[in-house]
Simulated assay, not measured.
Amino acid sequence: MVFRVRPFFFSVALPKVTINEKGICIVPNLFDPYTLKGVTLRNRIAASPMCQYMASAGLVSDWHLPHYTALARGGAGLVVVEATAVSPEGRITPGDLGLWSDEHLPGLASIVGAISKAGAVPGIQLGHAGRKAGCLPPWEGGAPLPADHAKAWEPIAPSALPFMPEQPHVPRAMTIAEIRRVQQDFAAAAQRAAQAGFQWLELHFAHGFLAQNFLSTHSNQRDDAYGGSLVNRARFLVETVAAVRRVWPTALPLTMRLGVVEFDGRDDETLAEAIQVLKWLKAEGVDLVDVGIGFSTPGAVPWSPNMLVPLAARIRAETGLAVTTSWLITDARQADSFVRDRQVDLVMLARPLLANPHWPYAAARELAIDRPASVLPTPYAFWLQGWSGA
């Protein structure tokens, strides 16, 4: 069975164009450079943050360096390191990377060096899993760690509501003091990310994790300044972005991933709320949004190719933010058209790059880009450039 996303009806302005000094209309393509703030990517292909769950105590392991080196060598313009916890209780699993301590800096700095040396811009995603924290990795079932497990911990969230109804993995409702502490954890982790050399920061405010917990009525039933109205439910996000913006270098992009749809029967309302929240966050200094899914309930998602691109286009048109998205974008020609039509500024790829880190090279050949092997490092490009043999 093929699922289709229920359509959203809206009008989008015609693509904006750039006119060069000779009066020629310039339309961007997938392999054009992209500049945001003081950072320029070599193309519009980005490696989306993909959890590996291979860390111990949040520390980089032998797995991570070759993984991120391969993604960068493959030709992506931006490589974003997986969701990295801002505090120990914010980990999805015990195998998450962390940045709550200076002890995490050397390993992450080595990843920054490898990505940069391969020609990509190093980015990192910072997050807190909220009520979804403390689980097994997905290949072990993804269920919450049993309470008597040696590595188990109590999750925290805006309200004491489990993700799965009747589930014993119930989070503790956060006090105001804990809210302040987690916001400072985000700011401190952002400072460390800059110290490690990352040039692109993404805050993970999607996937049913802590920030999305505050925004969603599925997980937030507070009756104080952090619950109830949209202004209140967005307060944690707005304050956290403001705290991070104060410490993150102004010349570097501050971005976020936000779940803008839940597929819970309230899609139009949820999207409209997300657009308003993004306007507030833009005012606090967010430069780009990675358009994602809320995942605040265990309900089914109607998966289909390129499913979030129309929503990204609407958000771009209505907020003025730069946008990107992922989710079942696999075809090079389609990805190129999304950039050319100004529906997105970048294309995020996840599973396609796991299957083939050299997807950018294959895309360049398919799109007949001049010298397609130039996206690869010299020891690969030399042998592939102009070669038509086996």
Rank of each mutant, 00 (worst) to 15 (best):
P7H: 08
P7R: 08
P7K: 07
F8K: 10
F9Q: 10
F10N: 10
V12E: 08
A13E: 14
A13Y: 00
A13F: 04
L14I: 05
P15V: 02
K16T: 08
V17Y: 06
V17L: 15
T18S: 13
N20Q: 09
N20F: 08
N20P: 06
E21H: 13
E21P: 08
E21T: 10
K22H: 14
I24R: 15
I24T: 15
I24V: 14
C25D: 00
C25K: 13
C25N: 07
C25Q: 14
C25M: 14
I26P: 00
N29L: 02
L30C: 11
F31R: 03
F31H: 05
D32G: 12
D32I: 11
D32R: 12
P33G: 13
Y34C: 12
Y34N: 04
Y34W: 15
Y34P: 01
Y34R: 06
T35I: 06
T35M: 07
T35W: 04
K37Q: 12
K37H: 03
K37I: 01
G38I: 03
V39A: 04
T40C: 00
T40A: 06
T40W: 03
L41H: 07
L41Q: 06
L41P: 00
N43P: 11
N43T: 11
R44F: 00
I45G: 06
A46P: 07
A47G: 02
A47C: 13
S48F: 07
P49M: 00
P49I: 03
P49T: 08
M50C: 12
M50H: 04
C51Y: 03
Q52R: 14
Q52C: 09
Y53C: 06
Y53N: 03
Y53T: 01
Y53E: 04
M54H: 11
M54R: 15
M54F: 01
M54D: 03
S56L: 13
A57C: 09
A57G: 08
A57Q: 15
G58T: 10
G58V: 12
G58E: 07
L59E: 14
L59K: 14
L59I: 04
L59A: 13
L59F: 01
V60R: 01
S61Q: 09
S61H: 04
D62P: 01
D62Y: 01
D62W: 02
D62C: 01
L65F: 02
P66Y: 02
P66F: 06
P66D: 06
P66N: 03
P66W: 00
Y68M: 08
L71Y: 10
L71S: 02
L71P: 05
A72G: 11
A72V: 09
R73S: 14
G75C: 12
G75M: 10
G75Y: 08
G75E: 11
G75V: 04
A76G: 02
G77F: 11
G77D: 09
L78P: 05
L78V: 09
V79S: 05
V80T: 11
V81M: 06
E82G: 06
E82N: 09
A83H: 01
T84M: 07
A85V: 09
V86G: 00
V86C: 00
P88N: 13
E89K: 12
